[in-house]
Design a protein around this nucleic acid. Structure first.
Length: 890
RNA sequence: GGGCGCGUAGCUCAGCGGGAGAGCACCACGUUGACAUCGUGGGGGUCGCUGGUUCAAUCCCAGCCGCGCCCACCA
């Protein structure tokens, strides 16, 4: 016998173990079932499970389990990402605590150390995913830095290089002065910051000192960069300054003679209308510099301190220190015109949280614009579909304006770039050192020493290959053939650019096909106040804690039920508790079935039930499962969850099991046998349908039930019904019974009839069909409404004496004999209320039906529906009129 | 500056052209042989505002108000 409540803690680990041993998650390329492939977004090895993972992984697991049960050869490809910067930071922090650093360790030892860290701590996230019930093929787990994937990375790099799509260039990059590496545009966070706009006067060459027009004023938010100025730009059409174009200013503090150039970049509306140009430290200025052949003077070293290119007093100063000094010194010279407050965007590194510097260095770039073209077309042509569709706009917007992608990073942890340099700087790109050496020998005509580029690749470069590198590419493996392209990618919108776009570009380029058909973009999980969860805010809800407290299934179900398309999820613990209750409800329904020997019966034919109630519940189950399946097909996760929730709790537990009780408690016989089988059948289908959403409790129940068809739920078929099980007449009949009971209960409650009291109920003045229904379900009505039921052809004398409440249900009247509780005046008021309600409805319908335009233009079935409603309402009104008349006759 | 999204019951949210819904919270009653992590009944909403399209608008369109997010090189 099942316990009274479900204890997830003791069950989940055991069930996990069984799944694992059964090999249920394993997918084979040789399998001839239709493949279904999902690529897991690889979490960082440094990661531990947060709510975003929990949602992302749960949705993937739901789909994978659903498709697997639906007969697909389902591969969910797992793995982790080496996360260059994040991981290197973690290990460097450890080293600091040990009083050392990576420089003193040296590259090789440092990298060894990171691998060691990965071996010890890198598996955390994987274990946590198992706790969540994730069902990927763990045998196939990959790591972006493992042997095979590294080969894929080198292959891609070499090929793109030879195609001219990867190149080396000296230009401005976003430089992180703390991590000492370049980062991509996407890793820069523009933050609105309160700062100042300083207006400086630059003396014009050849102007008379002190004369009114002896200066040109420039404005800047970054005074220290003036030390690297090589021009002042004005708009060619700006009358105030046009005459100055071609003249020079003498750069204060430095003494450099720099030109005044005309460039449309200068905006007469902004600042003073003249803008200082620092090509080496500003992206716009860099372009201006290129147009005018200006020198780019780099004034910063890699730490963000001023270098030898500036006058002696400023050398070695930190950039922020230099800013103050420059202002002070210019003021002393009388060249500070004014200071304004200004809110402006300051670039921060998303990892280091420090101010990013545009810095002039040699880096490797991918010509993203070329790769983007087919990637844009794939989405335009619908070969890839975003769900919800609006994300396509975001994708297009970014892809159509894509910039060269800086892929080199000055880190040690990652894929070292397969490029070597000869003594003269000649570049040799090759799969390995031996090949590079040979290339060099061919090039120079003799063995020549070459050195490898020390940089590593952006982590996203390797994750961009994930959909095919994990399947064995560049080898042409059976896996690749079977599982590429994948079916759906499930991820958050925050990595559409970082990852999704890159996978599409790389997949199309190297596999000549899209990496996946659908991209389902889910929402962000926020706290219950709608704030983004973050460690610094301290509002992080830990999924593991919720799993401990409420069970994994409750958490999963919550996330699925709240995953409506296009809206963020505000998670509250209360909600999880609510779904824990649902798990308990399901558990107890199963327990009830077990107690009453509702067990799988070999010959049971769900289409052949004699009892209406059984036909009805089977029909309702078929509808619910069909709807849930359709919802999952359309990625409407919340709908699937709600449909099943409502069916299990309200239809099955609240109504069916209560209706079934008399038969189950009664004497042996056909009714009891059939009801037992039907209940068991429904329970099994319910467990199957819920399994993708709540794998643990359903598997546990499946195992605990006395007899069943299949060994494990995980490999059972998702219930697929044919239309034959949907029985509209049973539905009509039971709906009426349900409403009847509801009406009686409502009246009893309103009239304060003691819940325990059994009172007479008479169906009066009803047609044959209703009388037949009433008769068939007499026991159900009596049990659930606590009445003694009978049928009378005429309204009874009880009503005429005022001993009964009259309940109008469609075109029948129910008489509830509760004389002791009736207050005639109140009863009259109640009936009048009913009457006015129905009259209101009739008036509304009449308004429509009397509108000739409605009759003329509304579709036929809508008009017909209104007519039927009108007729039904009219019947009810007649009955109510009669009831009132009888009361008035007293 | 551009783009996206959201304003529906006290709270969190579904629905989205033809009869306003769920969960939680709230109120009343209930120890009926699965479940008090429960059952039964109940109260509560001019579906942000203003126009327009339509026979019909919470739903479509426009504008406005409020809120959030993303992108953008502006001194």
């Amino acid at each position: 016998m099942l316990d009274k409540t479900y204890s997830p803690q003791s069950v989940e680990a055991r069930i996990s173990e069984r799944w694992d041993q059964s090999g249920a998650f394993e997918a084979e390329a040789s399998d001839n079932k239709a493949p279904f492939a999902v690529m897991m977004p690889p979490p960082n090895v440094t990661g531990s499970l947060h709510m975003g993972h929990a949602l992302n992984m749960t949705l993937q697991d739901v789909l994978t389990r659903y498709r697997r049960m639906s007969g697909r050869n389902a591969l969910w490809q797992p793995g982790t990402d080496h996360a260059g910067i994040a991981t290197q930071m973690v290990v460097e922090r450890q080293l600091r605590e040990e009083g050392t650093d990576r420089a003193s360790l040296g590259r090789e030892k440092f990298v060894d150390r990171v691998w060691q860290w990965k071996a010890e701590s890198g598996g955390t996230i994987v274990k946590q995913l198992q706790r969540l019930g994730a069902s990927p093929d763990w045998r196939r787990e990959r790591f972006t830095l493992d042997e095979g994937l590294s080969e894929a990375v080198r292959t891609v790099f070499v090929r793109l290089y030879h195609e001219g799509l990867i190149y080396r260039d000296k230009r401005l990059v976003n430089w992180d002065c703390q991590l000492l590496t370049a980062i991509s545009d996407l890793e820069v966070d523009q933050r609105e910051t309160k700062g100042h706009l300083w207006h400086f006067k630059y003396p014009l060459e050849g102007a008379e000192e002190g004369a009114p027009n002896s200066f040109i004023t420039v404005a800047t938010t970054r005074p220290e960069t003036m030390l690297g100025d090589t021009a002042v730009a004005v708009h060619p059409d700006d009358e105030r300054y046009a005459h100055l174009i071609g003249r020079h200013v003498l750069l204060p503090l430095v003494g450099r003679r720099i030109p005044i150039v005309g460039d449309t970049y200068s905006d007469p509306e902004k600042g003073s209308g003249a803008v200082k140009i620092t090509p080496a430290h500003d992206f716009n200025d860099f372009e201006v510099g290129r147009r005018h052949g200006l020198e780019a003077i780099n004034i910063l070293d890699k730490h963000g301190q001023l270098n030898d290119a500036v006058p002696e007093p400023y050398r070695g100063l930190d950039r922020f220190e230099a800013r103050k000094r420059v202002v002070v010194d210019l003021e002393a010279l009388g060249l500070l015109e004014k200071i304004e407050d200004q809110v402006h965007a300051v670039p921060y590194g998303d990892r280091s949280n420090t101010v990013i510097e545009p810095w002039l260095t040699d880096q490797w770039y991918v010509d993203a614009a070329v790769l983007a073209k087919p990637a844009i077309e794939a989405v335009e042509e619908g070969r890839i579909r975003f769900v919800p569709k609006n994300w396509e706009n975001t994708y297009f917007e970014w892809m159509r304006n894509i910039q060269p992608w800086c892929i080199s990073r000055q880190l040690w942890w990652g894929h070292q770039i397969p490029a070597w340099y000869g003594p003269d700087g000649h570049i040799f790109v090759a799969m390995d050192e031996a090949e590079a050496v040979k290339l060099a020998e061919d090039h120079y005509g003799e063995p020549t020493k070459i050195t490898r580029d020390p940089d590593v690749l952006d982590t996203w470069f390797s994750s961009g290959l994930w959909p095919f590198s994990t399947l064995g590419w560049p080898e042409q493996t059976p896996e690749l053939k079977t599982f590429y392209p994948g079916d759906v990618l499930i991820t958050g919108f925050d990595i559409i650019f970082f990852w999704v776009a890159r996978m599409i570009m790389m997949g199309l380029h190297f596999m000549d096909d899209v990496p996946f058909r659908d991209v389902y973009i889910h929402a962000l999980v926020r706290d219950e106040k709608g704030q983004k969860m973050s460690k610094s805010k301290g509002n992080v809800i830990d999924p593991l804690e919720l799993m401990d407290a409420y069970g994994t299934d409750a958490l999963r179900f919550t996330l699925v039920a709240m995953a409506a398309q296009g809206r963020d999820i505000k998670l509250s613990e209360q909600r999880v508790a609510g779904y824990r209750n649902f798990v308990t409800k399901l558990w107890n329904a199963a327990r009830f079935c077990q107690m009453n020997e509702c067990a799988y019966a070999a010959g049971f034919d769900p289409a052949g039930c004699a009892m209406t109630a059984n036909r009805w519940i089977i029909s309702a189950c078929a509808e619910a499962v069909r709807d849930a399946g359709q919802a999952l097909d359309a990625y409407r996760f919340n709908e699937a969850a709600n449909t099943l929730y409502s069916f299990v709790w309200h239809t099955f537990c609240d109504w069916y099991l209560e209706i079934a009780k008399p038969a189950l408690y009664g004497d042996d016989g056909a009714d009891k046998t059939e009801t037992r089988s039907a209940a068991a059948w429904i329970l099994e289908r319910t467990l199957e349908a819920l399994h993708p959403l709540m794998p643990f409790v359903t598997e546990e129940l499946h195992e605990s039930l006395a007899k069943h068809e299949h060994d494990m739920l995980v490999t059972t078929e998702w219930p697929a019904f044919d239309k034959g099980l949907i029985d509209t007449s049973a539905k009509q009949e039971m709906d009426w019974i349900v409403r009847l009971i509801g009406e009686v209960r409502s009246v009893r409650s309103e009239m304060n009839v003691p819940p325990g009291a059994t009172v007479p109920l008479q169906l009066a003045d009803a047609n044959e069909r209703l009388c037949a229904w009433f008769g068939t379900h007499k026991t159900t009505i009596e049990t659930l409404a606590r009445v003694d039921a009978s049928i009378s052809a005429q309204p009874s004398q009880d009503a005429d004496r005022g001993d009964s409440i009259q309940i109008v249900l469609d075109n029948a009247t129910l008489l509830l004999k509760i004389a002791d509780f009736i207050d005639i005046a109140e009863e009259r008021a109640r009936l009048e209320r009913e009457l006015s309600k129905i009259n209101g409805e009739i008036a509304k319908i009449d308004k429509k039906l009397s509108n000739p335009k409605f009759l003329e233009r509304a579709p036929e079935d809508v008009v017909e529906e209104q007519r039927e409603r009108r007729a039904d309402a009219d019947l009810s009104r007649q009955k109510l009129d009669q009831a009132v008349a009888r009361l008035n006759a007293l």
